[in-house]
């Protein structure tokens, strides 16, 4: 397939129609639910997902949730409300900070940070980052902890594995607690939970297992991030949301998705991922994108390494013996739907 910078251009109107038909079929026919619950982060993915759901199910059958905690950006709630008002859907706000405090999320995270930086206290901010020089060095993925004191001075240190796992395990409470609330309202209203990953996130495992990775339906998981923006334009998502730089909104120190996971701007990573998915020769990718073949190989290797980890995140519970025959036919029917969607996605 011919590779060029426009390969991700799509017919937004037709794709919106196709996804909305899929949402209707899957929510009503496959899942047998009355509507959809969506957590609104104020970001582009949840905004597009909610807008698609409103078009598919009607605004009265879509519930938006705003689920901030004390480390959330101040704009999280504002943009979530902006979107809910724009779509004219009900929005329920639940501050998840008390739940996270009860889990010990902040205390356990801070205790791990203090092992590396004893001076760290509640007035400090922190985040985890990856080095940003993938295209210059081909470096392997590893993580550094960055702290910022109340006067804005920053320090960073490479994180030993034990402390890294402690921090990640503690902060994963955030995504899993949000999912608890999503399923609470979904159960209460007999609604489905819509997940909001785009293809970059879904493919490379940028989600928490049992947290934001958990959903009944993920309507935009087949779309590259650039394509999500194309749909957003067609759907009329407010400019204030479109103009936001994608963030993790996980740590209290401002952090982009590039810093934490993807290493490259989404526009570039989308094209690399498409090229890898379509077996475009390295030399052709290098020529079109203006990089060396070494740089292309480094990015391809980075994607492959992340996919190894993503395999575990995507995996359903393993069984010693296959029992899909008989009583679990409903699982098979869902898989058929998924397979059907995957086949359609290959057409892009």
């Amino acid at each position: 397939m011919n590779f060029h910078r426009g390969v991700l251009d799509l017919h937004a109107e037709a794709e919106i129609s196709r996804i909305q038909t899929g949402i209707q079929q899957q929510v009503y026919q496959v899942l047998n639910k009355h509507g959809a619950v969506i957590a609104l982060s104020g970001g582009i993915d949840s905004s597009v997902t909610a807008s698609l759901a409103v078009g598919a199910l009607g605004r009265e059958r879509v519930l938006g949730l705003s689920l901030p905690e004390k480390d959330s950006r101040s704009t999280t709630c504002d943009l979530g409300k902006l979107l809910a008002d724009h779509l004219q859907i009900n929005l329920i706000r639940e501050d998840i900070t008390p739940a996270l405090e009860a889990f010990g999320c902040y205390g356990k995270r801070d205790a791990a940070v203090k092992k590396l930086f004893p001076e760290y206290h509640s007035g400090y901010k922190m985040k985890i980052v990856m080095p940003q020089d993938l295209l210059n060095t081909g470096r392997l993925n590893f993580f550094r902890l960055v702290i910022e004191d109340p006067r804005g001075n920053q320090q960073s240190r490479r994180i030993p594995p034990g402390e890294f796992l402690e921090i990640v395990a503690a902060t994963n409470h955030k995504q899993r607690t949000r999912k608890q609330y999503e399923y609470y309202y979904a159960d209460k209203m007999n609604y489905a939970v819509l997940g909001t990953p785009n293809r970059l996130e879904y493919d490379q495992g940028f989600f928490v297992k049992g947290g934001d990775g958990l959903a009944d339906l993920k309507p935009i998981a087949h779309l590259y991030k650039s394509q999500v923006y194309q749909l957003a334009g067609q759907l009329g998502i407010p400019d204030m949301i479109l103009d936001q730089k994608p963030t993790t909104d996980t740590y209290n120190l401002s952090q982009t998705q590039e810093e934490f996971f993807f290493a490259l701007p989404y526009e570039e990573m989308d094209l690399f991922l498409w090229a890898l998915n379509h077996a475009v020769p390295t030399s052709e990718v290098a020529s079109v994108m203006g990089y060396s073949t070494h740089q292309v190989e480094w990015v391809f290797a980075d994607i492959r390494h992340k996919r190894k980890v993503a395999g575990y995140l995507h995996a359903p519970p393993l069984l010693i013996e296959d029992i899909r025959d008989g009583q679990l036919n409903h699982v098979q029917s869902n898989s058929i739907i998924e397979s059907s969607l995957e086949e359609k996605n290959e057409n892009y």
């Binding site: 080095p131 060095t137 081909g138 470096r139 392997l140 993925n141 590893f142 993580f143 550094r144 490479r158 994180i159 030993p160 594995p161 890294f164 796992l165 390494h305 190894k308 980890v309």
Partner: peptide
């Protein structure tokens, strides 16, 4: 994986008394 890298670096730094700088994690 990326976690394993950190573990191996920790092992060789301690056992062989060297310090691996970020630029060498390639």
């Amino acid at each position: 994986d990326s976690l394993g890298i950190l573990s191996i670096i920790g092992f060789i730094e301690e056992k062989y008394t060297i310090q691996v700088n970020d630029v060498d994690i390639v």
